[in-house]
């Protein structure tokens, strides 16, 4: 019985860690070059602690409900004074972690100067990669977030309804598609 519980806990931990990507060590170098950085690390414990401070008022109640289903939020954002501070390798270090069958691309737009990619994990995790000439942002959300959650958030943060579901990606590639 105890063995089974331990096994369940281990497999749950495994599922969550699979949703969490590792930010490349090179991001520390980017932080030094950036004029503005955002570094949010909310592990399960901190996230749970933060949700306790959300009130039950209308505005925060919905955020609270959704946040309670999340297991972690990790954001790295960099804004640079000039272009060319981050490289394709910085992006490919992220993408290489999303190649497994558990990750699906639901949105991928790419033009000469801007990249937006949204990935959903089979078990509910989300990853957003947004790259512009002077900005790079990676958002990694772990836990049970799905498109309907995002839709529910729309009233709170201007989050639009995401079209497409896992496996039915809205891929829109520009001319300089690499793959």
């Amino acid at each position: 019985m105890m063995f089974r519980s331990v096994l369940l806990m281990l497999s749950a931990a495994g599922l969550l860690s699979a949703q969490q990507i590792k930010f490349p060590a090179a991001f520390e170098r980017l932080a030094e070059k950036a004029s503005e950085t955002v570094n949010v690390t909310l592990d399960p414990q901190t996230l749970s602690f933060a949700t306790k401070f959300l009130s039950d008022k209308k505005e925060e109640a919905e955020v609270k409900r959704i946040a309670q289903k999340l297991k972690g939020i990790y954001v790295r954002g960099f804004e640079f004074e000039k272009e060319g501070e981050y490289t394709d390798k910085d992006l490919s270090d992220i993408r290489s972690q999303l190649k497994g069958p558990e990750w699906s691309v639901i949105v991928s737009t790419r033009s000469k100067r801007e990249i937006s990619e949204i990935y959903l994990h089979r078990d509910g995790g989300l990853l957003i990669l947004s790259a512009e000439p002077k900005e790079l942002t990676i958002v990694n959300i772990m836990g049970n977030i799905d498109p309907s959650d995002l839709t529910n958030l729309s009233g709170q943060f201007g989050i639009p309804k995401v079209q497409g579901t896992p496996g039915k990606g809205a891929r829109k590639d520009g001319k300089d598609e690499e793959e």
């Binding site: 950085t37 955002v38 570094n39 209308k58 505005e59 925060e60 709170q156 201007g158």
Partner: peptide
């Protein structure tokens, strides 16, 4: 020094469209 201004959303009620 390293801390960026985090509290963009201190009052979500006021978050605007």
């Amino acid at each position: 020094r390293q801390e960026i201004p985090m509290e963009g959303l201190a009052e979500p009620a006021a978050l605007p469209q």
